[in-house]
Computed example of a mutant assay.
Amino acid sequence: MSSSDRARNSGEARQRKIIHIDMDAFYASVEQRDNPDLRGKPLAVGGSAERGVVAAASYEARKFGVRSAMPSITAKRQCPDLIFVKPRFEVYKAVSRQIRDIFAEHTKVFEPLSLDEAYLDVTENIQNIPLATEIATAIRAKILAETGLTASAGISYNKFLAKLASDQRKPNGQFVITPKIGPGFVEDLSVAKFHGIGPATTAKFNALGIFTGLDIRNQSLEFLSANFGKSGTYYYWISRGVDERPVRANRVRKSIGAENTFSADLAAFDALAAELQPLIDKVWRHCESTGTRGRTVTLKVKFFDFEIITRSRSISAPVSSRVDLERLAIGLLLHEMPFRKSVRLLGVSLSALHDQDQAGPQLDLPI
């Protein structure tokens, strides 16, 4: 038995206090803050009525089913009065820096996931506030006072549960998942609600007769590992409310990627190129939202027999636009055509990253 297993079983590991802060409809809220004419109206940041995808949607637009990553034409169909505005990422980045300065007043251990969300480990905190709930309340109040924007917070004893908790009282609220209720909270959770489990993995779980956290918990570690590889161990433990991942301050991300498994195998270039488009969109949205750029584009191809190949191209200067990212990714695909066998998955990633701004016993601590 490993030391981590013994700690889980004996309760020797110290209970952490983790906060997940998530800004409410961040991009859209900034636009409504800065333009009073947009307040109270359905708003989409990014795209246009004719083309592109929605980068963010206001809560007024979400009532009509408008969501981020939705094609703009679909969003407009669902909400005919939808207003499109161009994103202002420099403004969003400036506001994000304000918010991170507020985090730094409470802890040095915080891990930004994007411009609008972060994990904070406040087990030991600068202001020696005993309750994580009080810290979350103070942070949210100061964000509102300094930026005019609202944030939601999730508080728990690990990252997985803190992330789930932040969705429970949105917008402008907070929720606590304590050690006492954590395992039960996960038990009733739909597999599709598990952070990190996408539609393809959800479908695979469902095909195995697994629909809830309790269903996952009822599976053996061997079964989950056999069906989900390395991720099986992660699923085994989070279904029990256990997540030992630390909050990583100043984490350096090595790559940004997106991939998709097709419902039916594909072989034609046009069909494969079309499937690349939403993946390129997803990678570029992350680049824009974080100010990250990279020099190496990689194409991942998984064939019907599960053979995997990757092809990469590096350029001297960072990829500066979605058009360039598309050109490089499609170029890699075209260079390999025709494939000898059909394809079941494509992926696109960007690496050699840097920030655009740069030169190149479990203690029962109250939550």
Rank of each mutant, 00 (worst) to 15 (best):
S3L: 13
D5A: 12
R6T: 09
R6V: 13
R8D: 08
S10C: 01
R14L: 12
K17H: 14
I19C: 05
I21C: 05
E31Y: 03
D34K: 03
P36L: 10
G40A: 05
V45F: 05
V54E: 06
Y59V: 06
F64S: 15
A69T: 14
A69N: 08
M70K: 02
P71L: 04
T74F: 12
A75H: 04
A75W: 07
D81A: 10
I83Y: 06
A94W: 00
T107Y: 02
V109F: 10
L113S: 08
E117R: 04
T123L: 10
N125E: 08
I135N: 03
A136N: 06
A141M: 01
A141R: 13
G148F: 11
G154S: 02
I155F: 03
S156H: 01
K159I: 08
N172A: 15
G173C: 05
P183H: 05
V186F: 02
L189T: 11
P199M: 03
A200K: 11
N206E: 15
A207K: 13
S220P: 07
S220L: 06
F223W: 12
Y234G: 00
W237N: 10
S239D: 00
R251V: 04
R253F: 13
S263M: 02
S263T: 09
A274I: 01
L276W: 08
D281N: 15
V297G: 04
V301I: 14
F304E: 14
D305L: 09
E307Y: 02
V319H: 02
V319A: 05
R322Q: 15
E326C: 11
R327D: 14
R327L: 15
L334K: 15
S342K: 14
S351Q: 10
S351I: 07
H354D: 15
D357W: 01
D357P: 00
A359M: 07
L363C: 02
L363M: 05
L365I: 15
